[in-house]
Design a protein around this nucleic acid. Structure first.
Length: 220
DNA sequence: GGATGGATTGGCT
DNA sequence: GCCAATCCATCCA
């Protein structure tokens, strides 16, 4: 399918707004679905001391919905130093290291005392220079599959220079990482979550939310 | 205090 | 398709 025929997003005329922490206290599945098309923002200072903001439009999320979810780190009431932050009210970050290599970025969601979070699995950059790089990668791939060099939750955190320093911080411009809504409303589809074969029946739950057929997805 | 294995990725067969 | 890399939270003794 040519890229020009992919489902496109609608952009109502609306101002850019920064999502407040309270936005994330709504039910986790709603938050995960609504995050598709939103813009994840990361303020960075480069080696020359110049402050810049990287923006990634979110194309793929997963919901982890608490103690009844065998794939959730806090399933069956596993309340530890690592999972403690998931018991916070929505609006803070849960970042952890997996396979000793990759940082996973999660946004804690839902009410306090309910260990829920949304994993950000994929996005694509919104700045013109980064977009050119992505187009070059896409044109070099005759299959028009996703650009491997950009796909995956570990890649996303690496590009945005996110690590466990963000653990427990608020989702806010004050901490350097926040989410903006510019009115983008892409088509959203549901899929099973990735990499949780150990989770019994929960592995088949449709808790992965994707921008339908978008090239930036980590997996189909 | 030691063993285990993972919400992944990239390289090699 | 297979598997190593590499850290540390968690579990068990």
């Amino acid at each position: 399918m040519p890229a020009s025929e992919l489902p496109s997003a609608k952009f109502p005329l609306s101002q850019v707004t920064v999502l407040e922490p309270a936005w994330f206290t709504r039910p986790t599945c709603v938050v995960a679905a609504d995050l598709i098309g939103k813009v994840l923002c990361r303020q960075l200072t480069d080696s020359d001391g110049v402050v810049k903001v990287l923006r990634m439009r979110i194309s793929e999320t997963e919901a982890y919905i608490g103690e009844g979810d065998a794939a959730c780190h806090a399933h069956a009431g596993t309340r530890t130093a690592r999972t403690e932050i998931m018991y916070s009210q929505g609006g803070v970050f849960y970042v952890y290291l997996t396979y000793g290599i990759h940082h996973m970025l999660n946004l804690v969601s839902g009410p306090a005392e309910s260990p829920e979070a949304v994993l950000i699995r994929a996005g694509f950059s919104t700045t013109e220079s980064d977009r050119l790089v992505e187009e070059q990668l896409l044109s070099a791939d005759k299959q028009l599959t996703h650009p491997r060099q950009l796909a995956g939750p570990g890649k996303l955190t690496k590009r945005l220079q996110i690590d466990r320093n963000l653990y427990g911080k608020s989702i806010s411009p004050k901490t350097g990482v926040w989410v903006e809504d510019d009115g983008c409303q892409p088509p959203v589809a549901l899929r099973p979550r990735i990499g949780i074969d150990y989770a019994g029946a929960a592995k088949d739950w449709l808790l992965r939310y994707v921008w339908t057929d978008h090239l930036s997805l980590s997996k189909k």
